[in-house]
C-alpha cells in the first residue's frame, strides 16, 4: 500500500523515542555516550524493512539500543555507575524541606540501583526510563512476561529496603 516514505517514519520514531532511549542508554553507558548509542540505533532503523519492524517498534528499538549500549560498555571495560547522581543532582538546591527530602530519597533510590543484580536492574531501566510494557520488556530480555513481573517486584522491594536501611543509618548518625 502507499506508505509514508521511509524517511518520514524513521523521523517519527525518532521524535517519539528519542528521549526514552536516551534515558535508557544514559543509565547504561552514562549521559556522555548515550547520544552515540541512540544515534546508532536509529541509523540501524533506517536500514530496516518498515513492515517487519513497525508492529513491535518499541521492543525493537530498545533491544538494539541495549545491545549497542552493552557493546560500548564492554569496550570501556568498566561499569559506569548509574549514580553519577552527585554531579547531576546537587543536593544543595534551595527549596522547601519536603522537596529536599524527596530529592534525597530519589538520590538514594538511584544510588541503590547499582546494587541490583544485572537482570533486575535492566528490567527496572526498561520499565522506568523506556516505559516499556511487561510484554515488551520480556521481548527485549528474552524472558517471559510473568518473569518480568517477578524481576520488577523483587527489584523494587530491594530498592526500598536499601533506601530504608540508609534512612535508619542516617537517623542513627544524627542521634
Amino acid at each position: 500500500m502507499p506508505s509514508e516514505p521511509t524517511s518520514h517514519w524513521v523521523l517519527l520514531a525518532l521524535s517519539r523515542y528519542e528521549a526514552p532511549l536516551l534515558r535508557y542508554a544514559a543509565a547504561i553507558v552514562g549521559s556522555a555516550q548515550a547520544a552515540d548509542v541512540v544515534q546508532d540505533t536509529f541509523l540501524r532503523l533506517c536500514n530496516q524493512d518498515r513492515a517487519a519492524v513497525e508492529p513491535h517498534l518499541r521492543a525493537w528499538l530498545f533491544t538494539v539500543c541495549r545491545n549497542r549500549a552493552l557493546d560500548v560498555r564492554r569496550d570501556k571495560r568498566h561499569v559506569e555507575a548509574v549514580a553519577e547522581v552527585d554531579e547531576v543532582m546537587p543536593n544543595n538546591l534551595p527549596g522547601p524541606a519536603e522537596a529536599l527530602e524527596r530529592r534525597e530519597a530519589m538520590r538514594r533510590v538511584l544510588g541503590a540501583l547499582d546494587t541490583l543484580p544485572e537482570r533486575q536492574r535492566e528490567a527496572v531501566l526498561l520499565k522506568f526510563s523506556g516505559d516499556l510494557s511487561y510484554q515488551e520488556i520480556a521481548e527485549v530480555l528474552g524472558t517471559s512476561v510473568s518473569n518480568v513481573g517477578f524481576l520488577l517486584h523483587t527489584a523494587l522491594r530491594a530498592l526500598r529496603e536499601q533506601v530504608e536501611k540508609k534512612d535508619r543509618e542516617a537517623e542513627r548518625r544524627s542521634r
Binding site: E18, A19, L22, R23, A25, A26, A27, S31, A34, A35, V38, Q39, E84, V85, V88, M89, R102, A105, M106, R107, V109, L110, L113, V124, L125, F128, S129, D131, L156, L159
Partner: peptide, 16 residues
C-alpha cells in the same frame, strides 16, 4: 516508581 521515573529522566539528555 515515580522517583525512578523522575530520577532517570533528570540525568539523561532530552534530545540528541
Amino acid at each position: 516508581a515515580d522517583m525512578l521515573r523522575e530520577g532517570l529522566a533528570e540525568r539523561a539528555p532530552k534530545e540528541l
